[in-house]
Design a protein around this nucleic acid. Structure first.
Lengths: 204, 204
DNA sequence: GTCTATATTCAGATAGAC
DNA sequence: GTCTATCTGAATATAGAC
């Protein structure tokens, strides 16, 4: 049976297969990174794990770097639509939920940290991505803080933009450290910073 | 005239020249990284900038990764002995002084972030280095906080180890973000976190 | 301690058949 | 859309002369 869209338009031919391959490649790439580490991964390794060839991969993503970036983008998109990661004003913030989730996906933190480091080069395709992403995330965290301030769940005297910066920086830094030493309590430290800034205990 | 040690033992022959070369290589490597970015730097580029050959570089450092690591180690050592970076209990903490200094050295933050990301691979030579370094830095920051708590310059109710973790994480995260977007106020955010945790304003 | 020259390895990318 | 086959390039590392 072939997949059809909600409008009943047939989705086979080129597209059905292409999308399926793309997703398989992205998932496999992440898995291989988790197994071998970011730097030692080559297109050939990923190709082998997907039962495809290196040329086949590049057909979909153009370059290796764009492939890796696509993995991160796909993750962001999936997380944005994941109801398990949506936060309530009186509960743990999204950042904490997100952290709790990240550490369960092998390779994800490694990939994030490595791409973020590589993005320091203005010519790297991830450069623009991180510039935009950081601005987006920061704005969302700041907005969340303001909503909590209005609702009485966050110290109203704290500068929301400043606090958002700190939360983000701690999250980024802890990921780099956690990738080296997974015994670090990534989620715990992040939660305690949030409590310190908000002046309120977090539930759970 | 040849250099002699304090004991009058002659320091020429192999050593004088070797040390000089090592230092030149380390300085130049950092400079080239600042100019070209970490990933695009090869031994040949550094060799060209030092008026040596790639084989000459490897004679001193064995591998490229060990060379890069040596740059960081040399920096740490130089900073440890730099009186301009020694903090007073009633002044800005070492972490802030260090941050203020780091952003003035082109390439240093790039190198740090890149090596830290690569250290996520347990086989990378920087892996052990960062494990040890993080423990050392954390212990030192925690000790500094305790001293300030005793002297009345830091909220005595704050857990010093926990606060040290947060300071370090913010510093690491901000460096990664600053490498991508140097308009970020690295020093400012770090200082404000310190003020928030200590419950006291920082001078200057 | 430094060089020249070379070995080795391996990567990403491309052309064209199926 | 995927494969086979190949190109091209670059990098690290090594051997051995000076």
């Amino acid at each position: 049976m072939t997949a059809t869209s909600a409008q009943g338009v047939k989705r086979r031919g080129p597209y059905a297969r292409g999308r399926q391959s793309r997703e398989l490649i992205l998932d496999t790439a992440l898995e291989v990174i988790g197994r071998e580490g970011y730097t030692s991964v080559s297109l050939r390794h990923i190709a082998a794990a997907t039962d495809m060839t290196q040329a086949g991969l590049l057909h979909h993503f153009g370059t290796k770097e764009q492939l890796f970036l696509a993995v991160l983008e796909a993750r962001d998109e999936a997380n944005a639509n994941d109801p398990a990661l949506s936060a309530r004003l009186d509960g743990a913030p999204r950042t904490v939920l997100f952290a709790r989730h990240s550490v369960t996906v092998p390779g994800l933190v490694h990939l994030f940290v490595s791409l973020q480091a590589a993005a320091g080069d203005p010519n790297h395709p991830a450069h623009e991505f991180f510039l935009r992403r950081d601005a987006d995330v920061r704005a969302r965290v700041a907005r969340d803080i303001r909503e909590r301030q209005s609702a009485g769940y966050f110290d109203p005297d704290v500068d929301a933009d400043d606090a958002a910066r700190m939360i983000m920086a701690v999250s980024d830094g802890l990921q780099a450290e956690w990738a080296i030493d997974p015994t670090i309590d990534f989620v715990g430290v992040l939660s305690r910073l949030w409590e310190k800034l908000s002046g309120r205990p977090l539930p759970e």
